[in-house]
Simulated assay, not measured.
Amino acid sequence: MADEVKLHGVAASPFVCRAIIALKLKGIKYELIEEDLSNKSADLVKYNPVYKKIPVLVHNGNPISESLVIIEYIDDVWKGVPILPHDAYEKAQVRFWAKVVDDKCAPAVTKAFISHGEEKAVAELHEQLQFLENELNSKFFGGDNINLVDITATFLAYWVGAAEEALGIEVLNKDKFPKLTKWCDNYINCQAVKDSLPPRERVVAFFKKQFDKA
């Protein structure tokens, strides 16, 4: 009997995109259940009653919430291309840097754009990005292959560029971050990633709308 895999989310969400990339890397067939976040489905609330947030992966009726938990679940359940290393120490390091991306870089990105590129906010973002720049010593954070850190940083590779275009500012430039900007190009041109990303114009339009509101 084939696995039934459903993903509750919104295609334009970077968090949902993480789960989609993991599924595509493993070659897993799935159904995307598009949610209306202003009117969440009863299933979403039932499957994720604590946070009531996307994404939620439902595998054979069993729900898994939170994007990074979903990615690890996908890696555990389906063999093929590994997303996390097998070595315990290497795995711990990967989890650490994924946490840095989410806990340090993501809020700094948001702050830089909400402030419309205010100098102090951009300087704070650059401080966080420098840690990633220093850590990146190969094509991907996973060496020659994509790993959990790369997938976690999808918003840096794709959404940041769209936000820069929408707002007309630059926060991630080639001169200051040569390794990170090259990583962005390598990453978004990977087939599994490319096939998972929403159309750029859709993301740019979303940010323009958000910035106009602000």
Rank of each mutant, 00 (worst) to 15 (best):
Ala106Leu: 14
Ala108Glu: 02
Gly80Ala: 04
Met1Asn: 08
Gly143His: 03
Val149Asp: 00
Glu119Ile: 12
Leu132His: 04
Val77Ile: 11
His126Leu: 04
Pro107Tyr: 12
Cys17Glu: 07
Phe140Leu: 09
Lys46Asp: 12
Leu44Gly: 01
Asn137Phe: 06
Ala214Glu: 07
Leu156Tyr: 05
Phe141Glu: 02
Glu135Asn: 11
Asn39Leu: 12
Leu44Val: 00
Ala42Ser: 14
Val160Leu: 01
Ile151Asp: 06
Asp3Arg: 04
Ser13Gly: 07
Leu132Lys: 07
Ile54Ala: 10
Ala98Cys: 10
Glu170Phe: 03
Lys182Gly: 08
Ala88Gly: 10
Val50Cys: 14
Val94Thr: 06
Gly61Ile: 02
Asn189Gln: 07
Arg18Pro: 09
Phe96Lys: 01
Lys179Pro: 04
Ala19Asn: 01
Tyr73Phe: 11
Ser65Arg: 07
Leu32Met: 10
Lys26Gly: 12
Leu129Asp: 00
Leu57Asp: 00
Tyr51Trp: 09
Val56Gln: 05
Pro199Thr: 06
Phe177Val: 09
Lys99His: 12
Ser65Glu: 03
Asn147Trp: 01
Met1Val: 11
Tyr89Lys: 09
Arg202Trp: 08
Glu135His: 10
Gly161Arg: 14
Ile114Phe: 10
Asn60Ala: 13
Lys99Arg: 13
Val193Tyr: 05
Ala214Arg: 14
Trp78Gln: 08
Ser65Ile: 03
Pro85Cys: 10
Asp212Met: 13
Asn189Glu: 15
Ala22Ile: 01
Ala163Trp: 00
Tyr51Lys: 13
Leu148Arg: 02
Ala22Lys: 01
Ala162Asp: 07
Thr154Asn: 11
Ala2Phe: 06
Asn173Asp: 15
Glu124Phe: 07
Ala11Cys: 10
Asp150Val: 08
Thr154Glu: 02
Asn145Leu: 15
Ile151Asn: 05
Lys6Ala: 06
Val16Leu: 01
Phe177Ile: 09
Ser115Met: 03
Ala106Trp: 13
Asn145Ser: 15
